[in-house]
C-alpha cells in the first residue's frame, strides 16, 4: 500500500518537474533576448536538480544527493559566467 502511494506520487512529481523543464526549454528557445534565454537555462538547471533529488527518493540511495549538488553548482557557475558575458562582452576581466 505505502509503496504504491509513494511510487505513484514520485511518478507524478517526476512528470510535473519534466513539464517544468519543458517550460524552461520553451523560454530558452523562444527568447526573445539573450537574457531571457539565460534565465530559461538557469531554471532548467534548478528543475533538473530537483528531478535528481526525486530520483534519489525513488531509488533510496543517497548517491543522487551528490549529483544534485554538482548540477546545482554547474548551473550557478554557468549562469554567472553568461550574465557576466552579457554585461561586458567577456567573461574574465
Amino acid at each position: 500500500m505505502s509503496v504504491a502511494i509513494l511510487g505513484w506520487s514520485i511518478t507524478l512529481a517526476q512528470v510535473l518537474l519534466t513539464l517544468a523543464m519543458a517550460c524552461a526549454v520553451l523560454r530558452f528557445m523562444r527568447g526573445p533576448r539573450a537574457q531571457d534565454r539565460i534565465i530559461g537555462l538557469d531554471t532548467f538547471y534548478v528543475n533538473a536538480m530537483l528531478l535528481l533529488v526525486t530520483l534519489g527518493i525513488r531509488s533510496g540511495a543517497t548517491l543522487y544527493f551528490e549529483a544534485a549538488l554538482v548540477i546545482g553548482l554547474l548551473g550557478f557557475v554557468g549562469t554567472v559566467a553568461l550574465a557576466k558575458f552579457l554585461m561586458r562582452g567577456e567573461v574574465i576581466e
Binding site: 500500500m1 505505502s2 509503496v3 502511494i5 509513494l6 511510487g7 506520487s9 514520485i10 507524478l12 512529481a13 517526476q14 510535473l16 518537474l17 513539464l19 517544468a20 523543464m21 517550460c23 524552461a24 531554471t43 534548478v46 528543475n47 530537483l50 526525486t54 527518493i57 525513488r58 531509488s59 533510496g60
Partner: peptide, 28 residues
C-alpha cells in the same frame, strides 16, 4: 519501485514531493 516506508511516512513524503513539484511547475 519505491522504498518501503511506513504508511504515515509515505503519505507525508508524497505530499511534500507533489506540492514541491507543483510549486516548481508554477514558477516555470
Amino acid at each position: 519501485s519505491a522504498p518501503d516506508l511506513p504508511l504515515w511516512a509515505a503519505i507525508l513524503v508524497s505530499f511534500f514531493l507533489v506540492a514541491g513539484a507543483l510549486v516548481t511547475l508554477l514558477g516555470s
